[in-house]
Simulated scan of single mutants.
Amino acid sequence: MKKTVFALFMLINSGISAQYEMKPAEGYTHDIGLVVAMLEDLKNRITAEVKDLSQSETDFLFDEKANSIGSLLMHLVATEAYYQIETLEGRKLTEEEEKRWGIGGELNEESKKKLQEKPIKHYLNLWDEVRQKTLAGLKTKDDTWFASEIDEGLNYHWVWYHVMEHQANHMGQIALVKNRLLK
C-alpha cells in the first residue's frame, strides 16, 4: 500500500504533471486569460467524453427526474450564451435569442421533451458557435473590466467563474448519466 501511494505521489510530482499547469491563454490579459484557459479545458474535457455518443445515448434518461446528456449540453450552451450577451455585449437577450436559448436555460419537463432526437454534434456545434463569440468578446476586455463591479459584491470575474463552475458541475452530471447508460 505504501509503495503504491509513493509511486502515485512520484508520478503526480514528476515531469508528467507539467502538462497540467494552468497558464493564461494567449491574446488575453492575465486574469481573463486564466479563465479562458480553464473554460477551454472544461469544454475540451466534456467534448472528449460525449463526442462519440449515439443518438440513444445522447437522449438517454435513466429515470423520470434525470436530464439527458443532450439537454445538459444545451443547458451549458444556453447559460454561456446568456452570460456572454449580458456581460460582454451589455444587453438583455432579444426575443429571438430568448426563443433560441430559453429551452436550454431551464432543465424542466418541456426541455426534456424538446431536447430529443438531435445528434450530439448538434449540441457541440452550438457550443462551438457560442464559445467563439465568448472568446472574441473576452479578447476585447481587460483585467480592470474583469474586476469591475456590476452590482454591489458582484464583478465580471465572479460571473465568468460561475460559468466555469457551472460547466464543471454539469460535467459531473454528464459523467453520471454516461455511467448509467444501458449497455
Rank of each mutant, 00 (worst) to 15 (best):
K133W: 11
Y82C: 04
T140L: 13
Q116A: 04
E86R: 15
H157K: 14
N125D: 14
S111H: 05
Y123K: 10
Y123G: 00
D128T: 06
K118T: 02
W145P: 01
W145A: 02
V130C: 04
L115M: 04
L126Y: 12
K92H: 12
I120K: 01
K112F: 07
D143M: 07
H157A: 07
P119K: 13
S148Y: 14
S148L: 12
L88D: 08
G104P: 01
D143Y: 12
G104D: 03
G90F: 10
T134K: 02
E96P: 03
L138P: 03
G104N: 07
R100S: 03
L93A: 09
Y123D: 01
K141I: 02
N108G: 05
Y156W: 11
E80F: 01
W158H: 11
E109G: 07
K114L: 10
I85Q: 12
E95H: 05
E117V: 00
K139Q: 11
T134M: 01
K113G: 11
K114Y: 06
E80T: 02
G105S: 10
K99N: 13
W127R: 00
W145S: 02
K141W: 08
K99G: 02
N125W: 12
E129I: 00
G104L: 03
L138R: 08
E98L: 13
R131D: 03
Q116Y: 02
D142F: 08
E106M: 10
E80R: 06
K112A: 08
N125H: 11
I150W: 12
E97S: 05
E129D: 09
K139D: 06
I150E: 06
Q84A: 00
D128A: 05
L88K: 12
F146P: 00
V130M: 07
H122D: 03
E129F: 03
T144E: 09
L107A: 02
G102A: 11
K113D: 15
Q84H: 14
N108P: 05
G102S: 13
I120P: 01
T87D: 09
W145I: 04
R131G: 03
D142V: 06
K114M: 08
Q116N: 07
K99A: 07
F146S: 00
K121A: 08
Y156Q: 03
D128L: 04
G90A: 13
E149S: 15
L124D: 03
L93K: 12
K133A: 07
E149A: 15
E98C: 09
Q84I: 00
G102W: 00
T79A: 14
E98H: 11
G90M: 12
E152T: 13
T144F: 06
W158G: 02
G102C: 05
K92N: 12
D142I: 06
D142W: 15
Y83I: 00
N155V: 09
